[in-house]
Write a protein that binds this DNA or RNA. Structure first.
Length: 105
DNA sequence: TGGCTGACCAAGT
DNA sequence: AACTTGGCCAGCC
């Protein structure tokens, strides 16, 4: 059972900030690594609530099957694709090749 | 209290 | 690869 949400958020932020440049991790992976297996949706909510000024590499977090979580064609999706591409992660048809770019713990 | 909603996941077809 | 289904969990009415 979760403690104070501030503490949980900090754990999640810490995990996300540890994702190496040029790699990606799924929401479920981040949750598990933060000690919260099964809390993938919670991770998504935490990232959604991130302030615009945040420097956290939220763009390195995608769905488990390699697809981006945003609606196709949205501004958010375009921003994420731009960030990933700049880091060398190839995004094609809103999808990333997990075999190649997954963050292996 | 209870139903609805997601920046989700895994297995099946 | 595209879809569907059932499960999941906290926030917001």
């Amino acid at each position: 059972m979760p403690e104070a949400s501030d503490t949980l958020n900090q754990r999640i932020w810490q995990v996300v900030s540890a994702i190496p440049v040029g790699t990606v991790a799924s929401y479920g992976d981040v949750a598990k690594r933060a000690g919260l297996p099964g809390y993938a949706r919670y991770v998504g909510r935490v990232l959604r609530n991130l302030p615009p000024s945040s420097t956290l590499p939220w763009h390195r977090v995608i769905k488990a099957d390699g697809r981006l979580a945003f609606m196709s064609g949205s501004d958010s999706e375009r921003r994420q694709i731009a960030c990933l591409t700049k880091e060398g992660v190839l995004v094609r048809r809103g999808r990333v090749d997990m075999k190649r770019y997954a963050w292996h713990q």
